[in-house]
């Protein structure tokens, strides 16, 4: 008995890169938010401001999950922002001019996302074209198509759609007190529920399904994956298809948030999604990453924006500069940690 106990102690499984980077991000986020609450108080103590991070960025969370999946396979998809813009515009035009209902436009949104995913996945996985070039062309295409569908911003007026858009879920027991002392309960939008359910579903898929594990294997080392009998091409293909479908859902969630189609919708969403994934511990070299980290990545990115505004730097350029600095910090941190671990692992085997 003692022998077995000793043995389990001796073979202590080292923490995987994914877990380590995830822990850093989650701890970083909580430390940052606590600090903000202590220093600036005010808005940061208001639960509604915390929930607004989700309300305003539900679409970004969904997009970033798609990007995380693609980045785990060592690919990249920079077309998501354009796809979101195209979907918002197409859905509004279809609802206003062609009498489409909510379900019809939702199907169109998913269809556009699926089509982009299928096309890009085919080009990347089966024709072996660089993912950056394919999705760059995808971004150009979707952004151009958005202005072809309509140059002017359009607003949705479909009654059923507006009813869903204005529907709020009241969170029981949490809220703030208004100026007159009345209790205002905190509210969240339906899109947030969709986003969080998707995060959970993708987390479970990445952790427990064969396809999820294949994604990590392909991203970590595609040759070894091939030798293990994994269908590398099909895995990559479905990664892009998933990212496309998620961009489709994100487009509809964006529409539910703003209710308008505009060519300027979701500009830089792809950059923010990539940044969130990186902050969340996903490596662009593939094989490492988790969607829970990505969720915290989005939250960290947006909390920093709030902190910048709270500290009095109201000019819009400060937000971009702090985003850049934060990205720089996390990228350097990851690089240093991974290099250290690699050295340690190297010396152990030698």
């Amino acid at each position: 008995m003692t022998f077995i106990g000793k043995k389990t102690n001796a073979i202590k499984e080292p923490v995987s890169n994914t877990t380590l980077l995830l822990t850093i991000t989650v701890c970083g986020f909580f430390a940052m938010y606590l600090l903000a609450m202590l220093i600036w108080g005010g808005g940061f103590l208001n639960p509604q401001q915390f929930l607004d991070i989700f309300n305003n960025n539900a679409y970004l969370i969904i997009c970033a999950c798609g990007l995380t999946i693609v980045m785990i396979t060592a690919g990249i998809d920079i077309s998501v922002g354009g796809t979101v813009a195209l979907i918002t515009m197409t859905c509004v035009v279809l609802m206003e001019d062609f009498g489409f209902g909510v379900w019809g436009s939702l199907l169109v949104a998913l269809g556009i996302g699926l089509a982009m995913g299928l096309l890009q996945g085919f080009l990347v996985a089966y024709l072996r074209i660089q993912p950056f070039i394919v999705t760059l062309a995808g971004m150009f295409f979707t952004k151009g198509m958005t202005t072809i569908v309509s140059k002017e911003p359009r607003t949705a007026a479909n009654e059923i759609f507006l009813a869903i858009k204005n529907f709020r879920i009241v969170v029981p027991g949490i809220g703030s007190y208004g100026r007159t002392g009345n209790f205002i309960p905190a509210r969240i939008e339906p899109g947030v529920i969709i986003a969080l359910l998707l995060v959970l579903a993708i987390w479970a898929m990445l952790k427990w399904t064969r396809f999820g594990r294949n994604l990590y294997a392909v991203g970590g080392n595609s040759e070894s994956a091939l030798m293990l009998g994994i269908n590398v091409k099909r895995t990559q293909f479905f990664a892009y298809v998933l990212s496309g479908i998620l961009a489709g859902i994100a487009g509809y969630v964006y529409l539910l948030h703003t209710g308008a189609g505009n060519a300027a919708n979701a500009t830089q969403a792809e950059i923010q999604a990539i940044a969130s994934s990186i902050i969340g511990g996903t490596l662009l070299s593939g094989g490492v990453g988790s969607v829970i980290g990505t969720l915290f990545g989005v939250m960290s990115l947006k909390t920093i924006s709030n902190i910048v505004v709270a500290s009095g730097l109201r000019e819009p350029y400060w937000q971009s500069i702090t985003t850049g600095l934060m990205l720089c910090f996390f990228i350097l941190l990851q690089s240093v940690i991974l290099a250290y671990r690699k050295n340690k692992a190297g010396s152990r085997t030698c």
Binding site: I271, I274, A275, L284, Y317, L327, I331
Partner: peptide, 16 residues
């Protein structure tokens, strides 16, 4: 660091 990720920093902060 992969060049695209490294230059993402300046890409975000450059124009500001």
């Amino acid at each position: 660091i992969q060049p695209m990720i490294a230059s993402l920093i300046l890409f975000t902060a450059g124009r500001p």
